[in-house]
């Protein structure tokens, strides 16, 4: 199934001429169902000067199972200058094989305008046995843009080896690379379960935070608590931090990521 969904968020003068973010374009397509939820933004966004009611929250709901082998899903998102968007998912997605061993592909392309902010948290992708999937998320930031991108992968359901699954996250600033890493697991990627890649861990997650106010990022203490194993906080650039964590399962992964993010998320 081929699907191409689009989302646009822009600033528009609201009551008393205060500019507010609003959805300027919303095109769901097939399995990619976009649902504005009217949620408040997470409290920690006040660190970025965001009024919790002024941002837009949209969640992806699954209009069909999958992605399945043979699917090609595309989501294009534009966050206008100064606007705030939280884009998440209603639930995790289970990446499954198709009937004919064809590959599946999910592409997400997001551009974040000047001084805009994006919270990207598409929930976990679960790589089921036999899947043949490639996912690519591209996020480009204009000057002054802020980003919190959190991606999580579950490597096979319980007691199961994953199919051939790859997920690449590429973050650029005005087109220049800031972060570009691809996870590849499954039989086609020999050595994926070695101590160089993920060994016996069943869940992998990363959070990329870009904040032009670099002192905010100093709140991530470089030394991760020993209670949070297999987790590192890495400075990508003066204004960008990465948290990488591996865990035996989804629940402990979430706990590890959230505990490590907590220092930053604690509002002043």
């Amino acid at each position: 199934m081929r699907a191409h969904a689009k989302l646009g968020v822009r600033l528009r003068p609201g009551a008393q001429d205060t500019p507010r973010s609003h959805v300027s374009r919303l095109r769901s397509h097939g399995p990619l169902v976009l649902r504005p939820t009217g949620e408040r933004l997470p409290g920690w966004l006040s660190r970025w000067g965001a009024d919790p009611v002024d941002g837009v929250t949209v969640r992806l709901a699954a209009g069909a199972a999958g992605p399945l082998g043979g699917d090609h899903w595309r989501l294009d998102v534009e966050v206008g200058d100064g606007a705030a968007l939280q884009l998440g998912a209603v639930s995790a997605s289970l990446v499954l094989p198709g009937a004919h061993a064809a590959r599946s592909l999910s592409e997400t392309t997001i551009s974040v305008g000047a001084d805009a902010m994006l919270v990207w948290s598409p929930a976990a992708q679960i790589a089921a046995a036999g899947c043949r999937h490639a996912g690519l998320s591209r996020i480009d930031l204009a000057p002054g843009a802020r980003l919190c991108a959190r991606e999580e992968v579950v490597i096979g359901r319980y007691g199961e080896e994953p199919g051939d699954f790859a997920q690449r996250l590429r973050v650029t600033r005005s087109g220049e690379a800031l972060y570009d890493q691809e996870l590849a697991v499954g039989a086609a990627s020999a050595g994926w379960n070695s101590p160089a890649v993920v060994a016996d861990r069943k869940a992998l997650g990363s959070i990329v935070v870009v904040d032009p106010a670099t002192t905010n990022l100093d709140l991530f203490t470089a030394a991760v608590s020993p209670d949070v194993p297999d987790t590192a906080v890495m400075r990508l650039a003066p204004d960008a931090v990465l948290i990488t964590s591996l865990a035996p399962d989804m629940i402990s992964l979430r706990h590890r990521l959230s505990t490590t993010f907590a220092g930053f998320a604690a509002t002043r």
Binding site: R170, D180, Q181, E182, L183, P195, V197, V198, L246
Partner: peptide, 20 residues
């Protein structure tokens, strides 16, 4: 930009610990 980006996640995490 089109060159491979294959990551060794444990290599990165371990390198940060090793340095300490």
């Amino acid at each position: 930009s089109a060159l491979p980006a294959s990551a060794g996640y444990l290599l990165d995490v371990s390198a940060e610990f090793h340095a300490t």
